[in-house]
Computed example of a mutant assay.
Amino acid sequence: MAEAESQRSRIKGVFSSERIAKVGAGATVRKTTQTMYWFAEEDEEERIWIQPLNPNYVPSGPKQEIPKDEFLESYAPEPEFYSTKVYPSIRKLNQTIAKAERHRANGETYSAEMEYGNALRVDEENIRANFGLGLTYLERGETGKADNIFQRLIKIEAAFEAEHKHLFNDFGISLRKNEMYDQAIEYYAKALELSPNDENLHYNMARACFAKADITRTVEHLRRALTLNKDLEIAQKFLLYLKKNNLLPQKLSSAESSTPE
């Protein structure tokens, strides 16, 4: 029985839920049934996550966890709705983003911008499309437009999840290289709230703090990175550079005297 349970397929697909709403007031009040459609997925820990579908039939917005008992009781599978509406919409959206990413990889930034825009008209909170458009603007040095994307992304927690790590890292580094240091620091601070034990995030935060001449925070994040990974060579070299150039704060210099040469 346990083996059969472990081998069962995880829940994944489109489901509907119904809500009774009152319309009108007084003697004219009446009840109506509202149907909502959700994309639901079960993770490895058997938790159920649901995400609403937007008017373009793609999952959009924040995911929320729902108890499995409540889900099984109140949500109905909609396999035909998924196959005729949702799957084609998701597929087309992913194709549009893939086309945009190919244009960006080839240096065709204006074509990339157009395709990312097409994707965002379908799903304005799509993480890949937002990161991609932000990177496109940064590659063109259009920091004002990139800042608009930054302000959007910093409010979306899903942007900092592991599945977006590659784009996430590229975006943070590009912010710093475009001298958007305040944004880079805010960006890495948000990321560290969600992943406080990522040594690379601490190293990148140190780089951003150094660009702002905040040596104390630079050293703090370098030391944290090396606590998490004592063999992180780039952090070792950065700390050594600070020592050799007498840039360490006085109260920290003695504490760093044992840094590997």
Rank of each mutant, 00 (worst) to 15 (best):
H166V: 15
K190L: 01
N169A: 13
L167I: 07
Y181H: 12
H166C: 09
F160T: 00
Y188G: 01
E163A: 14
P196D: 09
E161S: 11
E193A: 10
E193P: 02
A159W: 04
E193R: 15
E193S: 10
E199W: 05
A162K: 13
S174F: 04
K177W: 07
Q183W: 05
G172C: 09
A162M: 10
Y188H: 06
D182H: 14
F160E: 07
A189Y: 08
A189L: 12
L194E: 08
S174V: 01
N169C: 09
L201A: 07
A189H: 13
F168T: 01
Y187R: 08
S195E: 12
R176N: 12
L167A: 11
H166R: 15
A184C: 07
E161W: 13
L167E: 07
R176K: 14
A159F: 03
I173G: 04
E161N: 12
I185V: 14
R176C: 04
E199G: 07
M180P: 00
I185P: 05
G172L: 05
A191E: 03
A159G: 04
L175Y: 05
D198S: 09
N178E: 08
D170K: 06
E179A: 15
L192D: 08
S195R: 12
M180I: 00
L175V: 09
Y187N: 06
Y187M: 04
Y187A: 09
H164M: 02
L192V: 01
N200K: 14
D170N: 15
Y188Q: 03
D182I: 08
A162P: 00
E186C: 09
E193D: 13
L201T: 07
E199D: 11
F160D: 05
D170S: 15
F171G: 03
A159M: 13
S195T: 15
Y187S: 01
H164R: 09
N178F: 08
N197P: 00
L175Q: 06
S174D: 04
K165F: 14
